[in-house]
Structures are given as C-alpha cells and as structure tokens.
Design a protein around this nucleic acid. Structure first.
Lengths: 184, 184
DNA sequence: TACCGTAGAGAACGCTGGTTCTCTCGGTCG
DNA sequence: CGACCGAGAGAACCAGCGTTCTCTACGGTA
C-alpha cells in the first residue's frame, strides 16, 4: 500500500472515530482496525497519537472551510452570501453522524492539557471568524456585525450538537437576518 | 469527618479538577489528594467515578443557575433583566480559572459514550433556555427571541472559553440589544 | 537459488488509573 | 481492660492503551 494511501486511510479512520466517539476513548488499535493500516505503519506516519490528532484537526479544518466556501460561493449578492452560511450550517447539522463542532469537542477533552490542540482550536475559530468578517465587509456592513454573526453560528453549532437538531440553524439564520436589517 | 463534609469536599475537588483539566485526565487519586477524602470513603459516597461526575454536574447546575438568577433579580425592568444575563456572563468569564461551559466540555469528552452525561447536558441547557424564555415572556416579547438569545449566550460562552476573553459577552449583549429593539 | 529489506500480525512492555483489599490504629462499648 | 468497629493509608489487582518488538512471509535482485 502506497504511503500516501495509508496516510489517507489513517486520517479517514481518525476522523470517523475521533469525531464520533471523542479522542480519548479511541485507541490506536481502533484506528488500525478501522483503517486497515498496521500499527507499525501508523507509527511511521505519525510518531505519536497526538500527531495523528493534530493532523486530523488540520485536515478537517481545511475541508470544513472549503465546503462552507463552496456553498457560499453559489451566491453573488453580498447579503445572501451571509445568510447562506446559516443555510449551510443547517445542511451540515442534518448529516448523519453530526456530533457538534470537532474543535469545541476537542477543546473540552484536551484544551487544558494540550497546547497544540488549543492552538488548532483557536486557529480554526479564528479562520471562521475572519471569513465571516470578510463577508460582512464585502456587504459594506460594520465590523461588529461579523463578531455577532460568529457568536450566533457558534451557538447554533454547539446547540445542534447537544440537541441533535437542525432547528438552531434556522433560529440563528433568522436572528442573523434581524441583525442585518438593524445594521442596514 | 462527617459524611456530609466529606461529600462536600469530594465535590469541591471534583469541580475544581474536572472543570479545570477535563474529566478523563483527572484520576480518583487526584480527587483524593485534593479533597483529603480517602479512597475508601470516596467509593462509599460515590460507587463509581461516573457517579461523582454526575453529582459534580448536578451540583454545578444548581449553583450556576442560582448565581445567574440572583444577578438578574437585582433588576426589575423586564428588558434590563434580559440584558443582565449578558452582564452576568461577562462577570463569569472574568473569573480566574474560567474555562468555558462545564457541560459543553463534558459533552465533548463523554457525550458520545455516556448517556447519563448527555442527559445532564441537555437538562442544563434546557433549564437555561427555559429561563431565558421566561424572561422574554415576562417582557411581553415573542418566544422566538428567547431561542435567539440562547444561541447568542451559548456562542459567547464557548468563545470566551476558547479565546480566554470577556469580549464575547459584550458582543453578545450588543447583539441582544439589537434583537430586542427589532422585536419591540 | 540465496540474500535482503520491508511489511504486517500480533505479542509484549510499561504505565496509568479505576477499583478493591490489607493492615494498622484509635476510639467505643461491654 | 479487652474485643470490636470504622477509618485512613497505601499497596494490590486488573484492565486498557500507547508504544515497541519479534517473528514470519514475501517480493525483488544478482
């Protein structure tokens, strides 16, 4: 098996298991079983579990923001682009296996003990917030709105996770619409 | 040592350690060391670690909502009472050792593996949401506003945790003010 | 064919941590 | 005073898991 393929399979398994069950309750042997990549190979690719965790979070960050961007890019009107964020959240929440935000969940587990994980959480949230700020700026709206939309989105993600519901996306979207109107 | 005192000390230690470092990275021996309650006594009071975790979350839920209520009750004007929630969040965020929401953090660690913990998370969030709904209703404002304020608060709590900042409380408070104005 | 590097399966190792057990001691009651 | 009860300290037990090692098989090469 090609090294690149092994790496992909390992990360696929890591994402499925870490996201679905939490990081600490998944053993390297579970990763091996799910990925089909031997322990020896796993440790060649990722010298320790923590590195696999970091690679999982990094790859998911890229993919997550890419999917969001692609959805938003279907719209051209600046205000519609902002609201499209919440529509995409709704789609995401409805996916089977949705279990909230991978980074917030990681923060709960490892934020206090792993500075690397904490940094990745902040990087992801910073990127998402910056993306929203860009959308707000493109619409010619004041910057504070970006932070407020960010909080709405975060609240929706967390709540959709714990409640296993898509409702929060709609509620946040309606609130976002009201805030947009207030600033216009 | 009185049994009640031992129980309190155990829960004090559990709250300090579980909240500060995460649940899985704290051992029963750490609880013993911090509380001064012997392992034998700990296991008499809580037959397993999971029960200590549940007791920790339950006691914290009562205290947390009590503190919130007390702060809100300093105000009589219904609209001010709503905004007082966000002022209290700000105070809470500023406390030393603040590390986000105990229940969301627990959800990240144990939500997928412990149905009891998941139920406690939902119970806490449900109670908070219901409290907000009551404030909104007392102000004669429509129900959807309650859910929107809830999402803002959740987003602020999570973000204040990961960013170690009190800013999100202010941002959420301003957003809440705009939503209130929109509904009035 | 003999050699060699590599890979996988899975055992082994060492540590951690949840839970239980042992031993000792001090206090209480008959 | 002596038997007993409960409590604490800490060892012990046992399972899980991160990490490494061993053994075997195989494919390529001269």
């Amino acid at each position: 098996m090609d090294s690149e393929v092994a790496r992909d399979r390992a990360l696929d398994a890591a994402e499925k298991l870490f996201y679905g069950r939490g990081i600490q309750s998944v053993g390297m042997d579970d990763i091996r079983g799910t990925s089909g990549v031997s322990l020896k190979r796993l440790y060649q690719l990722f010298p320790a579990k923590e590195q696999l965790v970091e690679a999982y979070l990094e790859r998911r960050d890229v993919r997550w923001r890419q999917r969001l961007t692609e959805h938003v890019d279907r719209h051209t009107d600046p205000v519609e682009r902002i609201l499209a964020v919440f529509a995409w959240l709704r789609e995401w929440f409805a996916e089977p296996g949705f279990r909230g935000c991978a980074w917030i969940n990681s923060y709960g587990e490892l934020g206090a003990t792993s500075p690397r994980v904490l940094a990745l959480v902040r990087a992801h949230k910073g990127a998402f917030r910056a993306y929203l700020a860009g959308l707000v700026s493109d619409a010619g709206l004041p910057a504070p709105l970006g932070d407020q939309l960010f909080l709405l989105a975060e609240g929706a993600i967390v709540t959709a996770g714990t409640e296993a519901s898509t409702e929060p996306a709609d509620q946040a979207g309606r609130a976002a619409g009201l805030l947009l109107a207030a600033y216009r």
